[in-house]
């Protein structure tokens, strides 16, 4: 089984079409919606966790791209700005997935993008604005 969190971006012209359901129907993938938004100009963004066979996953992603959607791993949209982070750890109590945690030995704050679900709570909790999320 293969599992990955992805960000899908819609343009206004296809935001109305039923697309995600095809991932289940045609590609036998299980999805979990972590976040979904439609913006005022009708462009949209969905954060999904997809589970299934690696082959089906790849085919499903190709399908999405063929439909004209932009797809990228969630880990590409979220980052810890190392120059700004002061390693206080204020974020660690809020991160629901454990993506942000203390490294025991050094007491540095580590970010594991693979665990992140894009909830953005760390952005609000960080006093030096070191967490950067770009879901648009």
């Amino acid at each position: 089984m293969y599992s990955k969190k992805i960000v899908i971006r819609y343009t206004p012209d296809i935001v109305q079409q039923p697309i995600i359901c095809q991932l289940v129907k045609q590609y036998d993938l299980v999805f979990n919606i972590l976040k979904a938004r439609i913006f005022p100009r009708r462009e949209g963004v969905i954060v999904l966790e997809l589970n299934g066979l690696k082959e089906n996953f790849d085919n499903g992603i190709n399908f999405l791209k063929k439909m004209g959607l932009q797809v990228e791993p969630l880990s590409k949209s979220v980052s810890q700005n190392i120059d700004k982070c002061v390693h206080c750890g204020a974020c660690t109590a809020f991160c629901p997935t454990g993506a942000l945690s203390f490294e025991k030995q050094t007491q540095k704050v580590l970010f594991d993008p693979e665990k992140c679900n894009g909830c953005e709570i760390c952005v609000s909790a960080c006093p030096v604005r070191a967490m950067e999320i770009n879901l648009l």
Binding site: V86, H87, C88, G89, A90, C91, T92, A93, Q107, P127
Partner: peptide, 13 residues
């Protein structure tokens, strides 16, 4: 209760 510092132990060290 989960705890979180505002103070950086890493930088203090």
């Amino acid at each position: 209760v989960i705890t979180a510092p505002l103070s950086s132990y890493y930088k203090a060290r």
